[in-house]
C-alpha cells in the first residue's frame, strides 16, 4: 500500500477508533492517563495499520488494553506520589453522568474476579459479542463465550443474594 493510500485509510478509520477507545479508556482509568494511552494506541494503530483486521474495533481495544497495562505498570512505581497527588487534587467523580449510582451492582462487580468483571464490561459497555471479546483478550472465541456465560451467571447470582440481604437500602431502583 503506498503512503497516500495508507494515510487515507487511517484517516477513514481513525474517528471511529478514537471515539471507541476514548470511551474504553474513560471507563477504566483517569483522564490524564486516558489521553496518554489514546495517543499511544493511535500511534500503534498507525504503525501497524497493515495488521489491522476488517473488524478493527476489537483489535484496537486489544492495543489500548496493552498500552493501558504498560502505563499502569509504570505508574505503580510511583504509586506513593500518585496517592499524594490524588489527595491534593482529587479527580472528579465518574458518576456524574449516568443515573443514580447502583451500589449493589458495583459491589457485585467488585466481588467477581478482575477477568470476569472485564468480560462483562466488554460485553455491556463496549457492546462486544464473544468473538470480539476473544480478540481483545487474546483468547479463543469458544473460551470467551464460556467465560462470558459464567460471568453473567455469577453476577446474576451475586445480585440476587445481595438484593435479599440489603433490600432495606433506599438506593436500589
Amino acid at each position: 500500500m503506498n503512503s497516500d493510500a495508507r494515510r487515507a485509510r487511517f484517516e477513514r478509520l481513525a474517528p471511529a477508533v478514537i471515539d471507541a477507545v476514548r470511551r474504553y479508556l474513560a471507563r477504566r482509568t483517569d483522564p490524564a492517563t486516558a489521553d496518554d494511552v489514546l495517543s499511544e494506541t493511535l500511534l500503534i494503530c498507525w504503525r501497524r495499520l497493515d495488521d489491522m483486521p476488517e473488524e478493527h474495533l476489537p483489535w484496537a481495544y486489544g492495543v489500548a488494553r496493552n498500552c493501558l497495562a504498560n502505563a499502569e505498570r509504570g505508574q505503580r512505581r510511583h504509586v506513593r506520589l500518585l496517592a499524594r497527588i490524588s489527595r491534593l487534587d482529587p479527580p472528579p467523580a465518574t458518576v456524574d453522568g449516568p443515573g443514580p449510582p447502583d451500589g449493589d451492582l458495583e459491589r457485585a462487580l467488585r466481588s467477581l474476579t478482575a477477568k470476569e468483571a472485564e468480560i462483562l464490561r466488554l460485553w455491556a459497555w463496549e457492546d462486544l459479542a464473544p468473538a470480539g471479546i476473544a480478540v481483545v483478550l487474546g483468547i479463543s472465541a469458544n473460551a470467551a463465550s464460556i467465560r462470558l456465560h459464567r460471568a453473567k451467571e455469577k453476577l446474576r447470582k451475586t445480585l440476587t443474594s445481595s438484593g435479599h440481604e440489603e433490600s432495606t437500602e433506599g438506593s436500589r431502583p
Binding site: 471515539d19 443515573g99 459497555w125
Partner: peptide
Amino acid sequence: DDDDLRARLRRADPAASLEPA
C-alpha cells in the same frame, strides 16, 4: 434475563456522559 442484566450494567457506564471528541 441477559437484556436486563446488560441494561443494568449500561446504566452504570462511566462513559455514558462522555462528550464525543
